[in-house]
């Protein structure tokens, strides 16, 4: 019997598999496909203070072994999520939930996190710092170690819940950003967000995505994400949620060997709504093959010896 349980900053998960933010909504659509209670947790759609309509169409393009999206953080706003989605989540999932929080100013991040303080089911705050800072010319918080640290400090001061900073890969040295967040008090990190990319339609000679650029995700980015998890694991002592292109139980194990304590599955859910279920079902066999009784033993395993 393989023990799949893992721990993230004091939060116990029955297994390390977590649907990634932006690919799972607030759980409603997948609850029609399988019982969400098999999941370790799930990370809800990035939520901002105000409702956001998102970007114009088209927002989606295909890529070799992956896809691009430019949804533009469409979400109903934190108050509507608390009023309408949180009660529904309690009905369809009884485990710990990761609340993904966006923001366009440091105050907004802090205020969004504060509003979730009394919601017991929200076990971890995952702070998406791949958002433009409206007070700094639109530069992403996550591209500047100082700004990333400032958001971390502000959020930590606003909540008692564990705070995981979700890092963008669109930086020169992700380990530097990771260290800045860890030094500022982050309880953990989640990486990577999508890689900035684009496609051009040969017929129209125009970008496929109306927003011109979109975030690349899917199996194509897995080796990039894995390398970044490796680098960050070497740089910090706090737990890492590995995210990026994971599509199989083998990928999840690889991500853990690189240093992840838990694993988020994103684009794979869109291509196969049962992706997380299949991965969880296959994890014990992969662990047996690797000769581990506790899956948590895999974390960072590739760094030693």
């Amino acid at each position: 019997m393989v023990n799949l349980a893992v721990e993230l900053a004091g939060v116990q998960l029955k297994n390390p598999i977590i649907p990634a933010s932006g690919t799972f909504g607030y759980g409603r659509e997948y609850a029609e496909v399988y019982d969400l209670n098999i999941l370790g947790s799930f990370s809800w759609k990035g939520t901002t203070a105000q409702p956001r309509l998102g970007n114009p169409q088209p927002r989606i393009a295909e890529a070799p072994s992956g896809m691009l999206n430019a949804v533009g953080l469409q979400n109903p706003g934190i108050d509507a999520v608390i009023a309408e989605e949180v009660p529904n989540i309690a009905k369809i999932f009884q485990g710990p939930v990761i609340a993904n929080i966006g923001g366009f100013s440091i105050d907004e991040y802090a205020e969004n996190c504060r509003k979730l303080e009394d919601i017991d089911q929200v076990a971890i705050l995952e702070v998406n710092i791949s958002c433009p800072n409206v007070h700094a010319g639109g530069k992403n918080f996550g591209c500047d170690p100082k700004a990333a640290a400032e958001v971390t400090r502000a959020v930590k001061a606003a909540t008692k819940k564990p705070v995981f900073m979700k890092l963008t890969p669109n930086v020169t040295d992700i380990a530097e950003i990771a260290r800045a967040c860890a030094d500022a008090g982050a309880d953990g990190l989640c990486l990577i967000n999508t890689l900035l990319g684009m496609r051009i339609d040969l017929n129209t000679r125009r970008p496929v995505i109306a927003n011109r650029t979109g975030g690349v995700s899917g199996p194509a980015v897995f080796p990039v994400a894995l390398r970044m998890v490796w680098d960050v694991y070497e740089a910090v002592q706090i737990p890492i949620i590995g995210c990026g292109g994971v599509s199989s139980a083998e990928d999840a194990a690889e991500m853990m060997l690189a240093g992840a304590a838990a694993v988020e599955v994103g684009a794979a859910n869109l291509a196969d709504p049962r992706a997380c279920k299949t991965i969880i079902e296959q994890l014990p066999a992969v662990c047996r093959r690797l000769g581990v009784d506790n899956i948590s033993e895999l974390t960072g395993g590739a760094h030693h010896g």
């Binding site: 409603r28 659509e29 169409q57 927002r59 989606i60 999206n69 949804v71 859910n269 709504p273």
Partner: peptide, 12 residues
């Protein structure tokens, strides 16, 4: 253009 086709991704 759709991502998932079943309402999860807000792509369409």
């Amino acid at each position: 253009r759709m991502g998932c086709g079943f309402g999860a991704c807000m792509g369409c």
